[in-house]
Simulated scan of single mutants.
Amino acid sequence: MDDLEFRRRIMSDPKYRDSKLTAAIKESETNSKFADEILDLDSKIAKAMSVDVPVDLADRILFNQSSAEKEDKIVRPNFAKRAMAMAASVAFVVGLLVGQVNWGNLIVPPAQANIADTAIKHVLDEKPFVDKLDEQVQSSQINAKMIPFAYQLSERFPYHVYYLNHCGFGKSNALHMVFQGEVGKVTLFLAGVASAKAEDFVQDEMSGVIEPIGNTSMILVGDKGENVSKIADQIVKIIKPMI
């Protein structure tokens, strides 16, 4: 079991263990630490979400409903505000707990503004694993991985590719590629997420760009000095819909 598969299985069900997972934890101190962190986070979130319900809550609801009928439903907003305040408090506590963990965010909103966050966190999470690889990927292999997205390269990919695979990208799937840019390594995601417009971003000492391609998005992430927009322009020109 490789590191990526191990992380995905642990994150999807922190308490589940089978023979393969148990062996992976015993064989690697890094895996063991990661599994403990996920279990600890899972426990903290469970505690944060465990909010005691007031004993007289049912009576209050019935009282508010009765009063609303007599007072033309004036009381209802008060109860709604209390419920919203309680939900906001729980969300705040969970946010603090998640912020203490250094392996990235598990919950990713679908808005375009967070496509960049998803890409950056994905790069940071998998960098220790991916940086060690050089699969010397060929353009034919890239085309094979692009089939689920209904796109193909119209000519040879212009950069040396170290790593190629599919991955989860928020609530969607993506092609995940790492190649040599002009300054350092660049990560490319071709994700099944629509984006409204092209957008540059800089975050965590990295620079990136989001390029809409039909109903998908191409996201590039490189070192801060990398001209990812220039690279994106070159790659977009050779990505064509499958006929």
Results as ranks from 00 to 15, higher is better:
residue 7 R to M: 12
residue 10 I to V: 10
residue 15 K to P: 08
residue 16 Y to N: 13
residue 16 Y to V: 08
residue 19 S to Q: 13
residue 23 A to Q: 12
residue 26 K to L: 07
residue 27 E to T: 04
residue 27 E to S: 05
residue 33 K to M: 13
residue 34 F to V: 00
residue 35 A to Q: 09
residue 38 I to L: 11
residue 40 D to W: 15
residue 41 L to W: 02
residue 43 S to E: 13
residue 57 L to E: 03
residue 67 S to Y: 14
residue 67 S to F: 14
residue 69 E to K: 12
residue 72 D to N: 15
residue 72 D to M: 11
residue 75 V to W: 05
residue 81 K to T: 12
residue 81 K to Q: 09
residue 82 R to V: 15
residue 83 A to E: 08
residue 84 M to G: 13
residue 87 A to D: 12
residue 87 A to N: 14
residue 87 A to W: 12
residue 88 A to Y: 09
residue 95 G to Q: 01
residue 95 G to C: 03
residue 96 L to S: 12
residue 97 L to R: 11
residue 102 N to S: 15
residue 102 N to L: 12
residue 104 G to R: 10
residue 105 N to P: 06
residue 105 N to V: 09
residue 106 L to W: 09
residue 108 V to A: 04
residue 115 I to M: 05
residue 116 A to K: 12
residue 117 D to N: 13
residue 118 T to Y: 06
residue 121 K to V: 11
residue 124 L to G: 09
residue 132 K to A: 02
residue 137 V to M: 01
residue 140 S to V: 13
residue 141 Q to V: 06
residue 147 I to G: 08
residue 148 P to K: 01
residue 152 Q to L: 06
residue 153 L to V: 01
residue 155 E to C: 06
residue 158 P to I: 00
residue 160 H to Y: 00
residue 165 N to T: 14
residue 169 F to N: 00
residue 170 G to W: 00
residue 171 K to D: 15
residue 173 N to L: 11
residue 173 N to S: 15
residue 173 N to G: 15
residue 174 A to D: 02
residue 178 V to P: 05
residue 179 F to Q: 00
residue 184 G to T: 09
residue 191 A to H: 04
residue 191 A to V: 04
residue 195 S to W: 02
residue 200 D to K: 13
residue 202 V to W: 02
residue 209 V to W: 04
residue 210 I to A: 04
residue 212 P to I: 00
residue 212 P to A: 06
residue 213 I to F: 01
residue 214 G to Q: 03
residue 214 G to K: 02
residue 217 S to Q: 07
residue 219 I to L: 02
residue 219 I to A: 04
residue 222 G to I: 01
residue 222 G to T: 05
residue 231 I to R: 06
residue 239 I to W: 00
residue 240 K to S: 06
